[in-house]
């Protein structure tokens, strides 16, 4: 085989490999595994909520888009559509209970539904912000 054909074939193989890697690890990269991510902050749930309530801007800068681990007294578990939500209540507002709402990862739904109100629990999740009544956490997992 002529040398230039070998070079072209080699470049073609490299190109295909590069395209595959870019597609797999960049374009089609998986979502982060929130269960395994080390939290950026570990906080008391009430203190975490109070930070948003007293200084929303500062808390947004600190915690939005971060993985937070919180410990506090569970108020209740809610089910909405296919979601399971762990609810912490720290205030009563114009539209009812206010606090922290944690949407559980599907893997933890069944375990979360067995939790009893008023128990102290530890949850880790991705903080998406404060909507004037509640701090919202997504992709949450229970920590034992």
């Amino acid at each position: 085989m002529k040398r230039w054909i070998k070079i072209i074939l080699g470049l073609a193989v490299l190109g295909i490999a590069a395209a595959f890697l870019i597609y797999h690890f960049v374009i089609n990269k998986p979502h982060p595994d929130f269960e395994k991510i080390k939290p950026n902050y570990s906080l008391n749930a009430r203190a975490f909520y109070n930070e948003f309530k007293t200084s929303k801007e500062n808390a947004h800068k600190l915690y939005n888009g971060k993985v937070i681990e919180i410990t506090g007294k569970l108020a209740r578990i809610e089910s909405a559509d296919t979601l399971t939500i762990a609810v912490f209540v720290f205030n009563q507002g114009m539209f009812g209970d206010e606090g922290i709402r944690c949407t559980m990862l599907k893997k933890f739904s069944a375990e979360a539904k067995k939790l009893k109100p008023d128990g102290i629990i530890r949850i880790k999740g991705y903080c998406t912000g404060f909507n004037e009544t509640d701090v919202i956490m997504e992709h949450c997992s229970l920590i034992y």
Binding site: I27, N28, K29, P30, P32, T128, G129, E132, I136, E138
Partner: peptide
């Protein structure tokens, strides 16, 4: 109604990253 932008969930992680 009030919506938090980071609470929008996409099937593709890269698309969610670009959106935000």
């Amino acid at each position: 109604f009030k919506v938090l932008i980071k609470s929008f969930n996409f099937e593709k992680a890269l698309m969610q990253e670009h959106f935000n």
